[in-house]
Simulated scan of single mutants.
Amino acid sequence: MNFFSINTLLVHIPLGKQGYDLSWIEAVGTICGLLCIWWASKEKVINYFFGIINVALFAVIFYQIQLYSSLLLQIFFILANIYGWYAWTRQTPSQQVELQIRWLPARLRWIWGMASAVAILVMTIYIDTIFGAFARLTVTLLNELGLQAQLPVLQPDAYPFWDACMTVLSVVAMILMTRKWVENWILWVIINLISVAIFTLQGVYAMSIEYIILTFIAINGVRLWAQKAAS
């Protein structure tokens, strides 16, 4: 069995008109993603172990289905997970964990909010150009590694504003999580709700259910981290 092939079927899920073929690699990657978010909400460092597996497997999936811009984003998430693992385990001279859960100061919240708004606006306007550039860059890098990637036919984005929101906010949320800012969970709730709506509109109901679960985990993350930040 070729575990890493998206054509190695685990189960056919009878959702929607044609159902959904769930491969082994997607199933394991999804489970690791759920475990990552769950353990992160509990402030457990092991979340980064599952996070690295999750994004690595999804990078393989995106390579096979030629979503090269998404593949490049997974490389960022791998690096962010590695940094987060280091940041969460780094200790002070008194052997205490250096990072503590806290809220963003008002000034930083304003800066991140404005930067995110500008980035979303720019990406919404130029999303096809940006993703096209990412795709070409990734194809070039993959070919340099001898993987013989081909540039796919790039279609216009169906939901440019919402895709821009998910992309920008995902990057910001990941950065905030590595620094243990409570606001990261609020962003994940927003991202997951957008994902549920888009996947439902596209008829990908299995993914919609997954993101509904992620939404509840993120809401619980807001609750748990807000309590620790207030204590």
Rank of each mutant, 00 (worst) to 15 (best):
D163L: 09
Y126A: 14
L147C: 12
A164L: 00
K180I: 04
G113I: 01
V122S: 09
V153A: 12
P152V: 06
L142N: 05
D163N: 10
P156I: 08
A149P: 03
A135S: 10
S170R: 03
L137T: 09
R136Y: 10
Q96R: 13
P93M: 04
A149I: 04
A158N: 13
Q100H: 12
I130E: 10
T167E: 03
S116E: 00
D128C: 14
A149T: 08
Q148N: 15
I101T: 02
W103N: 11
I125T: 12
W112P: 02
Q95G: 11
A119K: 05
V153W: 11
Q95A: 15
M123C: 12
L145D: 09
T178M: 04
E183G: 01
G146S: 07
M123Y: 12
G132R: 03
M177K: 09
V139F: 07
W185I: 00
E98L: 14
A115R: 01
E98C: 14
G113Q: 03
T167H: 00
M174L: 05
V153S: 13
V122M: 05
W103M: 06
W162T: 09
I127N: 10
C165R: 09
L137Q: 13
R102M: 11
F134L: 08
W162K: 09
V97F: 15
N184Y: 03
I120F: 01
M166Q: 09
D128R: 04
S170T: 00
A158P: 09
T178W: 03
W181I: 02
T129N: 14
L142V: 10
T140F: 15
A158F: 13
P160F: 04
I186Q: 12
S170E: 02
R179W: 10
A106W: 12
V171Q: 00
V172Y: 01
T124I: 07
I111W: 02
Q95S: 14
A115T: 02
V171Y: 00
V97C: 14
V97R: 15
G132M: 07
R109M: 08
V118L: 03
L187P: 00
Y159V: 11
A135E: 08
V182M: 01
W103E: 10
L176M: 01
D157V: 11
L99K: 07
N184W: 02
E98Q: 15
V182L: 02
L151M: 11
A117K: 02
V168E: 00
R107H: 13
S94E: 11
R179E: 09
S116R: 01
W181C: 08
V153N: 14
F134C: 04
I111H: 03
I111M: 05
P156Q: 05
T138Y: 06
V118T: 02
K180V: 04
I101Y: 06
G132T: 06
